[in-house]
């Protein structure tokens, strides 16, 4: 048992991060290759200025018009995407484990704060799930796989929360937590999660077209 725990909390963490980073680089190359082959005309108007203008505009909450049309959804969405990264990176238990293997650490949330933020993430995911069932326009576009992806994201947060509180089956909760976290990392580059690093490219593409060709805003 100890050697299994040692494996999933040691080497497997680095393997997951390696697959994650290699996958991201592979994906980016693939997209650039596709663009070169099929749409290389975009280089005639692709502009750094308009790309970044669009990326930053979309990062400011409620600047883009479409986000103002559904304020509740975008409030939850912004908060969720922020916490998705912030919570695990600044979690005491994660930083403590990292410090013990790499002799390097950084600031952390207080455990009670992290616990509350975790609940916010879990409730946002429940909100997204309900929205897919209840709102007709969204329901129309929803496939079974959408729920599967929500579940994959929810799993590390739910099991982490249950483990932290030591409600039941503590050891198995931590093991499930670690494996589900690693699974999510590995899946990111190869599934729909890749929108997290594709989004800036999309913005550069549309931002340049709108800014440099149509002389309009894309937000």
């Amino acid at each position: 048992m100890h050697s299994f725990i040692n494996f999933i909390m040691g080497p497997m963490v680095w393997i997951s991060f390696l697959i994650f980073f290699c996958g991201v680089i592979f994906k980016l190359f693939q997209v650039i290759k596709q663009v070169n082959e099929k749409e290389n005309f975009i280089y005639t108007y692709l502009s750094v200025k308009h790309s970044f203008r669009s990326i930053f505009a979309w990062m400011i909450p409620f600047l883009p018009v479409s986000t103002r049309k559904s304020p509740v959804f975008y409030t939850v969405s912004y908060l969720f995407h922020l916490l998705l990264f912030i919570v695990p990176i600044f979690l005491l238990s994660h930083v403590a484990l990292f410090e013990e293997s790499m002799q390097w650490s950084w600031m952390t949330f207080n455990d009670t704060v992290a616990d509350t933020l975790t609940l916010i993430v879990i409730f946002s995911l429940i909100f997204f799930m309900i929205r897919r069932v209840v709102v007709p326009e969204v329901k129309f576009l929803t496939r079974l796989s959408d729920f599967f992806f929500i579940l994959i994201v929810a799993l590390p947060f739910v099991t982490g929360f249950l483990a932290y509180h030591q409600f039941f089956a503590y050891k198995w909760m931590v093991i499930t937590h670690v494996i589900s976290g690693e699974l999510m990392l590995i899946l990111i580059p190869f599934t729909r999660f890749s929108h997290m690093f594709m989004a800036p490219l999309t913005r550069a593409y549309t931002g340049s077209e709108f800014g440099n060709v149509r002389h309009a805003k894309d937000w």
């Binding site: 100890h2 050697s3 238990s93 030591q166 503590y170 050891k171 931590v174």
Partner: peptide, 11 residues
Amino acid sequence: FKSDKGPVLCG
């Protein structure tokens, strides 16, 4: 970890 005995998880 080395002796394969005793606690290793936070809780």
